[in-house]
Design a protein around this nucleic acid. Structure first.
Length: 843
DNA sequence: AACTTCACG
DNA sequence: ACGTACGTGAAGTTT
């Protein structure tokens, strides 16, 4: 007789088990299992039951949510769902099973809960996900299988579980004891025979708990639950369910990576599978995307369309890197929203012009909180998803994703999928945050377009004459050696002059020079300290020379040489998510601190040269920060001073010290200049006195006079501090935020720092905004006009262009005009521009 | 890894 | 009494 077959899904038991492996993806995972059972016609009837969770704690809340989702998903599959107030799913399922048996149906219980194994009999089997040879698969536990595995009848397992849970006895021991003694009762009656002290002790000590477990393992099978006969799964329904499947057909189900961090990451190396993924993509409104590779060649593409779907496409055979490139560009054109991390790093692999907005989640997160040290996927997962993911370094060590693909493929896949996944999930959260914080314009009109300008600048690079730099370094090395010997001669000792510790001991202990401790670790030998001693001790000058020479040699001569590529150019990195104020920074190498103030250092700029047929055009803003201050503070007198143009420091001196402009002395001008700097830095008498080597009292008087002269500035700075205290952040003209948590500090030092930051950030930040706008406009004007000249450097208030000779006039005009008109302020934005055969000449 | 020093705006 | 000017990055030394 052919008995009908029923599958009973223990929704709760499945969730509890699967949640461990796939916390974010358990519903989808379980649904897939159920769909497969239906598709493969493994059953005539199907039903599900839900009950209370055994677990509590943090996971319980989430599990409850997942349970509701799973109920919905099963209901969508037209599966009847049973639940009963306060009932355990174990009891509900067993009640159902009992009734099915009466109706002469065979039952399979799909669960993650091993407790069900005790309910196995001739007509009831249990399906539990377990590890097979090829990843996760369902193991069908029949009565024979239970006997083979445990050596016991299924019903005896109740006592095994009681011993395990109640007395903490291991499964193997528990089975052995029950095989030997037959039942718990007999075991307890004869426990004195036991050889193991440990087991005997556990049995005695935990007898109560064992009995309690045994009681709770008794099934309650009298719930009156019945399957509706009409709910037989019809052929038509199977077809319908298969259509509902939102997975592209034909994907590898076996051998897929099951991650502990929560989503299914699938590796695709086959062209037809890749086509299916891209087809899936076409319907996706929102996509998280990440590329990896080297030399513009894609080595992996990760795509995330939903919380449950993350694909990693790796070129192989027919599935070529070029194909991935074209498809990626297509997706970017078609998708409603594309989110990536670090867009600039993605541009080498794609032909994009910025026409379509690609949302850079890292930059969005930077705008929202610019004080973070990094904005990698694990940082964003922590901050916006409350999800702790292993960092790139933890997964790959020092390797890149491309390198790791060869040596440690699964970790590389994990890493790049994590990036796409986090992009996908954070995208909308960050879009909302930008809206809430009023930074959408800043983001979409300044930061995103800037990505392309910075990329272009990096790609262009700047030419550096290798041989000439080498000669410069050699000259330095000779002078270093000479100076070094003179210092040894004068101090009567050979020591490491580069060691502040050794130098301090020689100067202040051995030679007993005046001066004293200044740093935590010992004597300060900083230049400003030594300079005060220089007139009296000739060795000091030698040491300062030595310092300057070694600095130039190691950081610039040798340092820069290491970055010159085979194209004779240096392609540095310009970072957009580093500074607290909105400036960009430059690394590997730092091209924003090439010497200029000292004559010898300035020489280095002679090795920065344009390529053949080009010249440099350099343009910088004249006192952009003070002009921003004049604008933002609306101080009439300061604005007036700038409208007269000329020498702002001299005008300031004239007004502050009440002398005619033409009678301002060099000293007065110098003092006024220092005050101007101080204002921008967030003035304090301590700082100014230090900067001018005057007393604090004198410094206070200068500041007081300054504020008397420019009362609008005083009011403005006070307002900045007050507002930052109120809101917790400082604001630039374009809405850029800089949090100032120090303002809340009870520490005077910290709080004072916070006040200076509140005064400086809006000024520095606005200046940064303005040059960013200028950069974008200059860059796009060059490209729009079909010119070959390119921006090669940005140094905060300066842009350097490598200009084709034939484009020189046009470029120079364009550069100056775009910079001047980048923002409309109450005072003119003045720009100084120069042309030269080297960076040295163009300044 | 922290500290010191020093190059730039 | 407190004890720093604001914003960066790199190199070298010490721990």
């Amino acid at each position: 007789m052919n008995r009908k077959k029923t599958v009973l899904i223990d929704g709760t038991g499945m969730l509890e088990e699967v949640y461990y492996a796939l916390p974010d993806n358990c519903v989808k995972g379980i649904r897939n299992v159920v769909v497969r059972i239906i598709e493969e016609k493994q059953t005539d009837y199907i039903a599900a039951a839900f009950g209370n969770f055994n677990k509590d704690g943090i996971a319980a809340e989430d599990l409850k949510k997942k349970q509701e989702l799973l109920k919905e998903a099963l209901a969508d599959l037209k599966i009847p769902v049973f639940e009963e107030e306060g009932a355990r799913s174990l009891d509900l399922i067993c009640s159902l099973a009992k009734n099915c048996e009466k109706e002469e149906k065979d039952v399979s219980v799909l669960t993650g809960n091993e407790t069900f194994l005790m309910a196995v009999n001739e007509h009831v089997t249990v399906l539990i996900p377990g590890l097979g040879e090829e990843g996760v698969k369902l193991i069908n536990w029949s009565a024979d299988r239970v006997k083979a595995e445990f050596g016991l009848e299924p019903e005896q397992l109740k006592e095994v579980f009681s011993l395990e849970r109640g007395a903490g006895i291991g499964r193997k021991t528990a089975c052995r004891l029950l095989i030997q003694y037959g039942s718990l009762k007999t075991l307890y009656g004869r426990k004195e025979e036991l050889e193991s002290d440990q087991v005997r002790k556990a049995l005695t000590e935990y007898e109560q708990q064992v009995n309690k477990e045994a009681d709770s393992l008794c099934m309650k099978t009298d719930y009156n639950l019945r399957l509706d006969e009409s709910k037989t799964i019809a052929e038509s329904e199977i077809a319908e369910i298969m259509d509902m499947d939102f997975e592209p057909a034909g994907f590898p189900e076996e051998g897929e990576e099951i991650s502990s961090s929560g989503w299914i990451k699938k590796e695709v190396t086959d062209l037809s599978d890749a086509e299916a993924v891209f087809a899936r993509c076409a319907t996706g409104a929102s996509v998280g995307l990440q590329l990896a590779g080297t030399d513009k060649k894609i080595s992996a593409l990760a795509l995330c369309f939903s919380k449950e779907e993350c694909w990693c496409l790796i070129p192989q055979g027919d599935l070529t890197s070029e194909y991935l490139k074209e498809k990626t560009e297509e997706i970017i054109r078609q998708a409603e929203e594309i989110t990536v991390l670090d867009l600039k790093s993605q541009l080498p692999f794609l032909n994009l012009n910025g026409e379509k907005t690609v949302f850079d989640a890292s930059i969005a997160a930077y705008l929202i909180d610019p004080l973070k040290s990094s904005y990698e996927y694990n940082d964003l997962a922590n901050d916006y998803l409350s999800l702790s993911l292993p960092s790139k370094t933890e997964l790959l060590g020092k390797r890149t994703i491309t390198q790791a693909l060869e040596e440690n493929r699964s970790q590389a896949v994990n890493c790049i999928c994590s990036m796409a996944y986090v992009s996908f999930l954070c995208g909308n959260i960050l879009r909302d945050e930008l809206k809430k914080t009023d930074m959408e314009q800043l983001f979409y009109d300044i930061e995103m377009p800037l990505v392309y300008s910075l990329f272009s600048m990096e790609e262009t690079g700047i030419r550096v004459e290798r041989d000439r730099l080498k000669e410069y370094g050699d000259r330095l090395k000779i002078r270093i050696k000479e100076t070094e010997l003179k210092i040894y001669e004068q101090t009567g000792e050979t020591f490491n002059i580069n060691s502040p510790k050794q130098l301090g001991e020689i100067l202040f202990e051995k030679l007993k020079l005046p001066g004293g401790k200044k740093t935590k670790t010992g004597f300060s030998t900083a230049a400003d300290v030594l300079e005060k001693l220089a007139p009296d001790f000739p060795v000091i000058e030698l040491i300062l020379d030595y310092r300057q020479l070694t600095k130039l040699n190691s950081t610039y001569a040798d340092g820069l040489a290491a970055y010159i590529g085979s194209d004779e150019r240096i392609h540095g990195t310009f970072n957009q998510t580093i500074t607290a104020t909105g400036r960009i920074s430059s690394t590997e190498p730092n091209l924003q601190n090439i010497p200029i103030r000292m004559e010898l250092g300035r020489e280095i700029r002679k090795v920065f040269v344009p390529q053949e047929g080009c010249v440099f055009v350099d343009a910088d803003y004249s006192q952009i920060e003070l002009r921003v201050l004049a604008h933002m503070s609306k101080d009439a007198r300061l604005i007036g001073a700038y409208q007269q143009a000329e020498d702002i420091h001299a005008i300031t001196a004239s007004e502050v010290f009440h002398v005619p402009l033409l009678e301002v002395t060099a000293l007065q001008r110098r003092n006024a200049k220092a005050v101007n700097f101080g204002i921008v830095y967030g003035i304090s008498s301590f700082g100014l006195s230090e900067g001018l080597s005057i007393t604090r009292k004198e410094a206070s008087e200068y500041i007081e006079k300054y504020f008397e002269t420019y009362p609008g500035v005083k009011a403005f700075l006070d307002k900045l501090v007050a507002e930052a205290k109120e809101t917790g952040y400082a604001l630039s003209m374009f809405g850029r935020r800089r949090p100032v948590p120090e303002l809340k500090s009870s520490n005077f030092m910290q709080r004072s720092f916070g006040e200076r930051v509140a005064m400086n950030s809006p000024i520095q930040g606005t200046a940064a905004d303005i040059i960013k706008i200028a950069m974008i406009r200059v860059d796009s004007a060059l490209k729009r006009q079909g010119l070959k000249s390119r921006i090669v450097l940005q140094v905060h208030d300066e842009l350097l262009i490598e200009a084709r000779l034939e484009e020189l006039d046009q470029v120079k005009k364009l550069l100056v005009e775009e910079m001047k008109s980048a923002a409309r302020l109450a005072v003119p934005l003045e720009v100084d521009a120069n042309v030269g055969e080297s960076w040295f000449d163009a300044k």
